[in-house]
Design a protein around this nucleic acid. Structure first.
Lengths: 254, 254
DNA sequence: TTTTATATAATGGACCTACCATTATAAACA
DNA sequence: TGTTTATAATGGTAGGTCCATTATATAAAA
C-alpha cells in the first residue's frame, strides 16, 4: 500500500465521511486487499492532516458497514474484512422492524422466491444435495417428534434448511436474500414454532417438499410450497390478531 | 422524553456502540418518535457521563443506519428519521459489489423477480399508476430518441422506471430488493446504455411492457420481460468478454 | 536449550478543552 | 411593520492526555 497516493486531504463539512468513502473506494477497487491493515489512527491523522476524532468517526462508519474490523493493542488497527452478508441482512431486518413491515408482505415475498428457487434447485441441485436436503428435513422431523430440542433450536434448524435450499439454486444472490429474510423473520418463526400442531405440520411438509425435489417434480414441489404458505398465512393472521401483538418486537410480546 | 429513565451510563469497551444500541432500542420501541430531537451532544455527554467523542461515534453509527439525521446550528442536533429503504439497499448493494457478484447471477435474479413483480403489478396497480408507468416509459423513449439527455441521465430514468414498477407491487420488500439491485447494477446499466442499438431496443421494450401491464395481460407482459432478458444476457456476455473487463469497477474500465 | 516470566512499545478507547462555522431566534433598528 | 444585526446553542474539527490492551522482544529460570 502506498499511503502517499492513496490518501488525499479533504476539505470540510463531513471530513469523517469523506475519508470513510475514500477508504471504501480503495477497498472496493481492490487497492487494499482483505486482510491488509490500514495505517494506525495516528498515522492517518497525520496523512489526512486532520484530528484523530475524524479518523475514528471514519473507522466507525467503515466498521458499521462491515468493511473493516478493529483490533486493539500492539499490531492492532483496522483490518480489511471480507464483506459478509450479515451487515446487509441486519440493515434489512432493521428496515423491516422500524417500518413495522406487515408480516404478510414478508410471507408473500418468501413464497414468491421459494417458487423461483424451487425450479432452480430441481434443475441445478445435485442428487447428493437433494438427498442431503431430505435427510436434514428428516432430522428436523426427528427433533420435533423427539421433543428434546428447544423451540429456538427447532426454528434454527428450519432456517438452516431454508438456506440450504437457497444455496442449491446455484445463485448466491438467492442465498443472500434468503439469509436476510431469515434474519428478518426470525422473531416470527420462533413464535410460530410455539404451536405444536404447526411444528408437526411444518416438518412433515418439509419432508414432502424435499421428496418432490429429489423426484425432480417441480409441480408437486410448488404444490407443497403453496400449501405451506396457505397454512402460514392463516397462522400469521392468527398471531397478529391476538391482542394486537406485533410480531416484530423485542418488548414483552404478550 | 424523559432522559432520566431513558439514558443509562455504560461500562466499558465499546461505549459508543452501547449508547447507539440504547438509542436504537428506544427508537424501535417507540419511546422516541420520528421527528423528535435527541438531546445535544453535550447534554448526552453529561447524561451518559462520558466524553463527547463517544456520543459522536454513537451518532455516527445511528446516522449510518439511517435512524437519525444531524442538523447543524441553533436548534440543531440529532433528529429521529423515518427509516427509508435506501440504507438497507445501499448496504446490500455494497455487499454485491465487494463480493464481485457475477453479473449473470444478478441478471438471473432480476429476471426472476421481474416475473413475480409483473403479476403483482397487474393485479394490484391502479389504472393511474399503470398509465403513469406507460407515460414514464414514453418519456424515456423521447429522451433516447431526442438524443439530448446524457447516458447517465438515461440510465437514471431507466432505474426510476424499475423502481416505480416495483413500487406498484404494493409490497415494500420488492421495492427494497429492486432498489438494491438497481444500485448494484448501476455501473453495468450505464455501460449498456452506451450502445445506441441497445438503448433504442430497451426503451421500446419498456413501452411495450408498460402497455401490456396497462392491458392487464400477464402472459404478454412476461413475454416482454423474457425477451428483454434474452437480449440483456447476450449484451452482458459481450461486455464481460471484452478485454476481461469487470463490470463492477469505478476504475478506468478500459 | 527450552520454557516461562517480564518489560516494552504500539495501538485503540476514552476524556477533555478549545475554537470555529452554522443556524434559528431574539433583539435592535429603520 | 419590516429589516438588519447581535446572540446563543449546536455540531465540526483540532489537539492533547491518560488508560487498557496486546504482540513481541527480552530476560530469567528450569
Amino acid at each position: 500500500m502506498t499511503p502517499d497516493d492513496l490518501f488525499v486531504p479533504v476539505q470540510a463539512g463531513r471530513a469523517g465521511e469523506d475519508i470513510a468513502l475514500q477508504i471504501q473506494a480503495a477497498i472496493l477497487e481492490g487497492r487494499i486487499e482483505p486482510g491488509e491493515k490500514l495505517p494506525s489512527e495516528r498515522e492517518l491523522q497525520a496523512l489526512y492532516k486532520t484530528g484523530r476524532g475524524v479518523i475514528r468517526e471514519a473507522f466507525q462508519v467503515l466498521k458499521q458497514k462491515g468493511l473493516i474490523e478493529i483490533r486493539k493493542g500492539a499490531r492492532g488497527g483496522a483490518y480489511i474484512k471480507h464483506l459478509e452478508v450479515v451487515p446487509a441482512s441486519e440493515s434489512f431486518a432493521l428496515f423491516l422492524r422500524q417500518n413495522r413491515t406487515d408480516p404478510i408482505h414478508l410471507v408473500e415475498f418468501r413464497e414468491s422466491i421459494d417458487y423461483m428457487i424451487s425450479d432452480l434447485v430441481i434443475a441445478r441441485g445435485t442428487v447428493e444435495e437433494k438427498r442431503n436436503l431430505a435427510e436434514k428435513a428428516d432430522r428436523l422431523a426427528d427433533a420435533v417428534n423427539g421433543g428434546t430440542a428447544g423451540l429456538k433450536k427447532l426454528a434454527e434448524l428450519d432456517r438452516e434448511l431454508n438456506i440450504l435450499f437457497a444455496k442449491m439454486a446455484r445463485n448466491p444472490i438467492f442465498e443472500w436474500i434468503m439469509q436476510a429474510v431469515q434474519i428478518g423473520f426470525s422473531s416470527m418463526d420462533n413464535a410460530l414454532y410455539e404451536d405444536a400442531a404447526y411444528r408437526k405440520y411444518a416438518v412433515e411438509n418439509w419432508q414432502e417438499t424435499a421428496m418432490w425435489i429429489l423426484a425432480a417434480d417441480p409441480v408437486r414441489t410448488k404444490s407443497c410450497i403453496g400449501y405451506h404458505y396457505r397454512i402460514l398465512r392463516e397462522k400469521v393472521k392468527a398471531i397478529n390478531s391476538v391482542a394486537g401483538a406485533r410480531v416484530f418486537s423485542d418488548g414483552p410480546a404478550a
